[in-house]
Computed example of a mutant assay.
Amino acid sequence: MEFGLLGDVEVRVDGRVVDVGHARQRCVLAVLLVEVNRLVPVDALVDRVWGEHVPHRARNAAAGYVSRLRQALPGVRITGRQGGYVLTADPMSVDLHRFHALLERTPDEAVLGEALRLWRGEPFSTVDTPWFSALRTALEARRFAAVLDRNDLLLARGRHAGLPAELEAMADAFPLDERLAGQLVLALYRCGRQADALMRYDQVRVRLADELGADPGPELRLLHQRILTADLEPPGRVDTLWSSVERLRRDLDDLTRRLHRLTG
């Protein structure tokens, strides 16, 4: 059984989507999955699901939703105790917890790619209670940071060819993010589009001045200067270095597996 929160709330059994009820009932399930294996007091559950619009007899309504979830998901254990509920499951069966666990590992392209592929859309898009809104904002911020980390790895390895279009769309959505702007400027320059790179730098410089009354930070200014003077590391040399590192990592992993077999 797999639980999805990074998009519409859904449950899959053997790859098949299971009907877990209407929107409010799915909200109850989402709260219990976010806090999987931890007690959620009834008052906290009510606050998170209804926010400021708590209905009459909300505690009874919550109990009814939990009862129906038990019927819809007979393989899932939802226990009532100490004035609250606990949903017991493997946290790695919940995409949200798997996403966080992957980002806690040493970041590399494969790990970040796996984490980002867990996202199916905007989490809790139909829910606007303060708790869900704050959680959604925090999750999207962490996803954005993971995308930027992945971009840095791709650029460091000279794999810039496919990046400009994606980075341009992101930069249009987040025009004041200097790290993203630097990635776009560098990718454009590495693709032989120096004029476009300098134009993008000027756009973010003007926007920062107009909206924040600030100049670009030192890293972005240095990148701009190095483009003007053609003082950037050739991507081929960077890619060669990373290829050597990747080969060494694979050799070490292979050696570790062999030693484990010999000593096991």
Rank of each mutant, 00 (worst) to 15 (best):
G7F: 02
N60A: 11
D90C: 02
L262E: 15
L163M: 13
R16H: 04
P235H: 07
L96R: 00
D8N: 09
R249I: 00
R117D: 14
L87Y: 00
W131A: 12
D152R: 15
F3Y: 15
A146I: 02
D43M: 07
P175A: 06
D108N: 15
D254G: 03
G75L: 05
D152F: 12
H224R: 15
R257H: 13
E104M: 13
D231A: 12
A165E: 13
L176N: 02
E122I: 09
G192F: 07
R68N: 11
A61R: 02
R16I: 10
Q194F: 00
E122W: 01
D90V: 08
V245Y: 15
V11D: 02
D149T: 10
F99I: 11
E178Y: 00
L232V: 12
A141N: 12
H260S: 13
L222K: 11
A101H: 08
L29V: 04
S243G: 15
G162E: 10
G158Q: 08
D239F: 09
L186I: 10
L262P: 01
L248P: 05
A156L: 09
A145R: 13
P55E: 03
R237E: 15
M1C: 02
E114Q: 12
L176H: 06
V76D: 01
A115S: 06
A171N: 05
D90N: 15
Q82H: 07
G80V: 02
T79G: 00
R249F: 01
V127P: 06
L5A: 00
N37I: 01
E166A: 11
G236I: 06
G121Q: 07
A115D: 01
P41I: 04
R142K: 03
G158D: 10
L208F: 05
A230Q: 14
G113K: 04
A141H: 08
G83P: 14
Q225E: 15
S133W: 00
L241A: 10
V147Q: 15
P164H: 08
A209R: 15
F99S: 04
D251H: 13
Y85W: 13
R117F: 10
R26L: 06
P216C: 13
V66I: 10
I78K: 00
E140I: 03
P175D: 05
G84P: 04
E2D: 11
F144N: 05
R257N: 14
L102P: 01
V206C: 09
R200C: 10
N60G: 13
R68F: 04
A181D: 07
C27D: 14
